[in-house]
Computed example of a mutant assay.
Amino acid sequence: MSARTRRKKTSSPVQAPGGMQPVSRPAWEWRTFPVYFAFAAGGFIGLYMGLIAGLAGDTPFTYVAFTFWAILLGFGFSRITSRWMMNRGWGRRIQRTGKR
C-alpha cells in the first residue's frame, strides 16, 4: 500500500462528501444599498422590457408602476452621485477663516 492510503483520517463530527469541511456562509445584510439598487434596477428594467415587448398595456396601472420604479431608481442614482461627489471633494463645505 502507498503512503496515501495508510494515512490516518481524523474524525470530525460533520464531514461533507470527499472529506471537505463545509464552509460557513456569512450573514447577509439585506438592508444595504447594493440590494436596494439591484431591486430598483431590476424592477425598472423588467417593466421597461415588458413595455417594449408589448406585454404591459397602456393602462393607468402601468404608468403608476413605471413612475414608482423610476423614482426608486432615481433615489439609487442620486445616492451613487452624491457619494461620488463627496469622494471627489466637491461636496465639502468651504471652511471660513476668521479673516474677512
Rank of each mutant, 00 (worst) to 15 (best):
T81S: 14
F61A: 10
M85A: 12
R7G: 05
P26T: 10
S78P: 02
T5F: 05
G50C: 02
F61E: 10
Y36V: 00
R6Y: 08
I94A: 10
S78D: 09
F77W: 10
L73A: 01
A16F: 12
S12E: 07
M1I: 14
P60F: 01
A53W: 02
V35K: 06
G54C: 05
D58G: 03
R92F: 05
T59C: 00
P13C: 10
A27S: 10
Y63W: 09
F39P: 00
S78N: 13
L55C: 12
T10L: 12
L47K: 03
I80L: 11
G91K: 07
A40N: 00
R96K: 12
A56V: 13
I52Y: 12
I45Y: 07
T32L: 05
R25E: 10
S24H: 11
T97K: 15
S11T: 12
T32F: 03
E29P: 03
S78Y: 06
A40S: 02
F44N: 00
D58T: 04
P17H: 13
V35R: 07
F68Q: 01
A56G: 06
A56R: 06
F39G: 02
R83E: 06
A70G: 04
N87L: 13
F61N: 07
P26Q: 15
V35D: 05
A53L: 09
I94P: 06
A41I: 02
G98F: 08
R79V: 05
V64W: 07
L47A: 00
F68V: 01
F33N: 01
A56F: 09
M20A: 15
F77Y: 13
T67Q: 10
F75D: 07
P17G: 11
M20V: 15
R96C: 10
A70I: 03
W30A: 15
Q95Y: 15
L47F: 02
M20Y: 15
F39A: 06
I52T: 13
A65N: 06
F75A: 09
W69F: 05
I80Q: 07
A27M: 09
T81C: 09
G19P: 04
T62K: 01
R92W: 08
P26D: 15
P22T: 00
L47G: 00
S11P: 05
Q15R: 15
T67G: 10
I45K: 09
R88A: 06
F44P: 00
L51F: 02
S2H: 11
Y48N: 06
Q21V: 13
F33R: 02
